[in-house]
Design a protein around this nucleic acid. Structure first.
Lengths: 107, 107
DNA sequence: TGCATCAGTTACGTCAACTGCACTAAAGGG
DNA sequence: CCCTTTAGTGCAGTTGACGTAACTGATGCA
């Protein structure tokens, strides 16, 4: 399925935002820049390990920027790039759709 | 993370369309009703096992209907419900976003 | 001296999703 | 009699995303 760079946009999207946490991290960052621990606290259940990996991957893909402040204790701030911010339309569409689904669907 | 029925629409969406194949199956069915083998052929790499499970799950969630024709050999047709069809907006948003991403992003 | 903080890293283990392969029933064609 | 087709099912095995626990380095505070 993940052949090198499919032409289909949906498939491309799924390569960049895979796994259960990726989309939720973007959802949090759409509220504004956040520190590592702020993100971890906002996403109950995520491990530091997973959060680090997801953020590094987003950084590689140009979806977030990582800014390190040389302080003690250290401070690292994550922020969406313009590309990352434009994911808002997709998240909004997901949100609109899911809220139109009756609760009984999940039973 | 998957506590029972989160209020956040994005989280709800991710419960219903999880895994790498779910969204791609919806993408195919948006083109119209399809038989089991048509779907399998349209999704290179998917196993019958996985396709069955995903479709059954969509059926439980009211996203697709499954129609069995009592013929030999059997014929089973899958079709999106109105709820499933309304996912088109989400897929379109994904598509639009991904096609705005430069190819270098994936390198 | 010792503990707390932040933002991780490392090692190790778990678990669900996914894969491939073999198999099925019931009828039609050679 | 055997092969083919459809829509799966069952078994065995792999992958990789994720989790927990322990650790780090530099400093501030007690």
């Amino acid at each position: 399925m993940t052949e090198n760079l499919p032409t289909c946009g949906v498939a491309r999207f799924l390569i960049l935002l895979d796994g259960p946490w990726a989309t939720l991290i973007v959802r949090e960052l759409l509220r504004g820049p956040m520190r590592f621990t702020e993100l971890r606290d906002a996403l109950p259940g995520i491990s530091a390990h997973t959060l680090t990996h997801r953020l590094r991957r987003f950084e590689r893909h140009g979806i977030v920027t990582r800014t390190v402040y040389a302080e003690i204790p250290p401070r690292v701030v994550y922020e969406l790039t313009p590309l990352g911010s434009s994911l808002r339309h997709v998240l909004d569409a997901m949100n609109d759709w899911a809220l139109s689904v009756p609760d009984t669907t999940f039973a």
